[in-house]
Design a protein around this nucleic acid. Structure first.
Lengths: 229, 229
DNA sequence: TGCCAAAGCTGACATTTGTCATAGTATGCC
DNA sequence: GGCATACTATGACAAATGTCAGCTTTGGCA
């Protein structure tokens, strides 16, 4: 794959597109590419980040450990998304851990390149700001969903989310395969509860499964369930 | 109170402090001051905002209506905070409603003044960005709290939050008085459940009440409860 | 290939939380 | 001052969810 940021297509999807040619050149010269195996950390909650990570390939779960020892997955980040922005901008340690859900390839961009551009290029800053505004809105939605919907509704919603954001494979299964535990950590429930509800969905013909893989059979009914019918 | 932004103390608490003298002057010339009575809307979910609101006095609850008809309070904004930023920046309609919890005074600043400065003054943009990064972190915390803590823990936490952020009056009651319904909407539970738990706290000597007013009697135990003992 | 650890699954039960019904209490308004 | 209305409070019950325990399946690896 192209290794110069100037020519990297991924860039089109994130704030880096607002950088000038010269700025991109600087970023490209200072960046390093890393391969992360499924299950490995990109960074951990509480760490001080020296830069941000741009996802070229694969998916990462951003999670936070709660007092009772469970991880809550706050966001799934995929190709084109930039991780660690919040931390670098606020000059604080990360509040989230980033773990690879499948094999990943990420570019590490030192914070100096970012900070430098933030101070000089208002367009870039504005672009980052817009992205963060979007993330904040999504976070608000998650808050409302988690507190006002039942576990059943949230699981149905999670499946629809996975379909819309990651698509399906040739056989009609969700392209992104999460473990039952990950699913329960996304919706914020016990693993057993998630499993039980998945079984129920299967019995009702809403989904079909094969090992970990899940396929949506009746999207309409799932949608109705999310809406509360 | 001082009516020129250049001299307004409130400004010290928010992003406006990064504005230049000229920019502030422009803002001050275009702004209008509004009084909002307790219970009235500043803006409603779905509305297109033509500017932002800077809180000079009073407290506003930012909430979102869920499918089941309940409001979820996502944030309480007080003196110095700016409402509607996210919406103006992303050029979308608001995802939240803002309602006055007590009598308020706010300054409306047209979006042109904001957008203009955002494009020209990287320091201002960066400052706004930092604020939003902070809000995003808080939102992540709320997500984890709501999904991993019991209602009892969340109510205890809410009381401590109210004490730390709004203080107490001369008699030792929380300075910001919320209705039981508002409390339940902050923690995301049914009003009856909130009332029951408040009664329980009272019986256990953790708090004392007088009408709507609530005072913290045993902060330590509340803290332990939040931590899960 | 076969073993083992991890993941998936299920039942039984406890606990938490929501819902409905009803009654007391404060508060504002005429 | 009294009435209407909204808020607070409590009980009884139902539903949702978590916990624990044990069993089965799966997948990776020696």
């Amino acid at each position: 794959m192209e290794s110069r940021c100037e020519n990297c297509i991924i860039r089109q999807f994130n704030s880096l597109r607002a950088m000038s040619k010269e700025e991109l050149k600087m970023v490209s010269d200072s960046k390093t590419t890393k391969k992360i195996k499924k299950g490995q950390h990109i960074f951990e909650e509480g760490e001080k980040l020296n830069g941000v990570y741009c996802v070229r390939e694969g998916v990462s779960k951003l999670s936070k450990l709660s007092a009772n020892g469970k991880d809550q997955i706050v966001k799934l980040a995929t190709r084109g998304e930039v991780l660690g922005q919040r931390s670098v901008i606020a000059e604080e340690s990360t509040n989230l851990s980033a773990i690879a859900v499948n094999d990943m390839e990420v570019c590490f961009i030192p914070k100096e390149s970012i900070n430098n551009t933030l101070q000089k290029n208002p367009n870039f800053t504005l672009e980052v700001l817009r992205h963060m505004a979007h993330d904040l809105k999504e976070a608000d939605d998650v808050i409302v969903n988690i507190s006002q919907k039942t576990v059943k509704q949230r699981i149905a919603e999670a499946f629809l989310y996975l379909k819309n954001n990651f698509g399906e494979d040739e056989e009609g299964f969700l392209a992104l395969t999460l473990s039952r535990e990950d699913i329960s950590n996304v919706v914020g429930t016990a693993t057993e509860s998630a499993i039980r509800i998945i079984s129920e969905f299967k019995k009702k013909g809403l989904i079909h499964t094969s090992g970990k893989k899940i396929g949506i059979k009746n999207e309409r009914k799932l949608l109705e369930m999310v809406e509360g019918f």
